[in-house]
Amino acid sequence: MLKYTIRRLLGALLSLFIIVSVIFVLLRFMPMEGFLGAGYEKMSEDTVQSLLAEKGLLDPIPVQLFHFYKNLFQGDLGTSWVYRAGYPISKILASKIPVSLRLGLLSQALAIAVGIPLGALMAHARGKIWDKLGTGFIVLVEALPAAIYHLFLQLYGTSLLSLPLVFSKSNPVSLLLPVISVSLGSIAGYALWMRRYMLDNMNMDYVKLAQAKGVSGRDIMMKHVFRNAFVPMAQFLPGSILTTIIGSIYVEHLYSIPGTGGLLIDVIQRQDNAMVQVLVLLYSAIGIAGMFLGDFFMGLLDPRIQLVKGENNR
């Protein structure tokens, strides 16, 4: 097990290294405007050179790469070029990430608490009222562009329920609408998949045997079907939770939440490569970690999954 973990970890680090380095190199091939801003044409050659030197862009690429990683290991994420010029990136992230994370974690908690039981309920009541209502809900959420229901939620939430329009740290209630908005998509997704997995399991032979044993319908649902259906869900839960760090662009915008939503898009557009670099590193690491944790989690729940080959044989 240890060997497997180490192997997986090394593999992850390698992937990360490749991703980050490739992006790093590609970014360096961008046209000059990107690095120096709009006033580029007006600058003198000297200014250009000195600005480039400042950003460490005159060194050969391998050297730049080396410096980047060296700084990284020392905990220095660099400074932003454009977004907040001269400001340490670590500080920028430190102010934004916790906000999005809080929003994200709360909405994931809500999604899990509502979506998974909803899916189970829908499977159990297949074809009946709850299934139909649930299906209607899922279809609505999945078919409508998120922008629309986020907007409507804000509109009616603020007018009818007098909920706060703008996020403020001091008022936790102001998080209510944003959390609900963000969670809707996940609720729909979890319910949809949970229902699917539950139904798959409900038709299996082992359920018939359990019935023939005289096990009550309730026990069959809980101890057999739900428990088994949860295993494939477990695979994408860690990833979903971790990736909330990326923030929700629209919701955060609507409620003026100073999170990481849309940050990557923003810095790419503004060509703040230093920030792009760091964000790519961060998001890739999160993605890989999510997958790894998902596999690990699933392996814990399903004894058939042998993460290490060849140990379990009759």
Binding site: Y206, K208, L209, G214, N228, D302, R304
Partner: peptide, 21 residues
């Protein structure tokens, strides 16, 4: 009470009749 307790059943496919988890 009847299922199992009075009338029990052995099914066809042993590969799928047991809960794998």
């Amino acid at each position: 009470k009847i299922r199992g307790g009075k009338i029990a059943m052995v099914m066809q496919d042993p590969m799928t009749s047991l809960n794998p988890l």
